[in-house]
């Protein structure tokens, strides 16, 4: 398609202005909502492309197939994500302070540690250690004796083991290393 030179110049100028506005805007007020909108759009785009790879059996028995709902989900995420990006948003108070973020990371680390310990050493060792660690973290600044925390960790582990394993007959994590040793 042929466009006159002046038209092209005005189009490129307009495009430049829009891009500059977006960049400046995003630098100045990259609010939490806009970030959430971007994450939703990216997730929606990913879901859309992934859905293209889902096999669509002809023998499914319906004219919709297994792709329709993932497409609908992708559409919801993309449309609402764009809506959130374009919506007039204000800067909110900080979600957490620096100190609170540090505490959040610490307890997330404790969660991760517990999961890895469960996977490696099984219920008894991991749970007793985790209970002691978490009760120490939660009781920081209070006068809770170490022996009480140890007693608590061992006691709760024993009660949970008795409830789930002995009484209800459910299986608990054994642990890769413990299984290997046994």
């Amino acid at each position: 398609m042929w466009w006159p030179e002046s038209h092209l110049q005005s189009r490129s100028l307009l495009l430049h202005r829009i891009l500059t506005a977006i960049v400046l805007e995003s630098e100045v007020i990259m609010t939490r909502d806009r970030g959430t909108g971007i994450v939703a759009v990216l997730l929606g785009i990913y879901v859309f492309f992934y859905t293209n790879t889902i096999p669509n059996p002809t023998s499914a028995g319906d004219s919709a197939g297994p792709r329709v709902f993932p497409y609908i989900t992708a559409a919801i995420l993309v449309i609402c994500g764009i809506g959130l990006i374009l919506q007039k948003s204000e800067k909110k108070n900080a979600f957490l302070t620096k100190r609170q973020w540090a505490r959040l990371l610490l307890i997330c680390g404790a969660y991760l540690g517990y999961v890895l310990m469960l996977w490696a050493f099984g219920f008894l060792i991991a749970t007793a250690l985790c209970l002691f660690t978490l009760s120490s973290m939660f009781s920081k600044g209070k006068d809770v004796a170490v022996w009480k925390r140890i007693l608590y960790a061992v006691g709760v582990t024993a009660v949970l083991y008795a409830c789930f394993f002995t009484l209800l007959g459910m299986s608990l994590p054994v642990g890769k290393f413990i299984r290997w040793i046994i």
Partner: peptide
């Protein structure tokens, strides 16, 4: 609350419910 955020929440819930075999055809 914000309708867009509510719908994103619905979208994520639907997405997680779709993990696994699809109903009807088990794809």
């Amino acid at each position: 609350g914000n309708i867009f955020k509510g719908m994103i929440s619905t979208g994520i819930g639907l997405l997680l419910s779709q993990v696994g075999f699809a109903p009807v055809c088990a794809t």
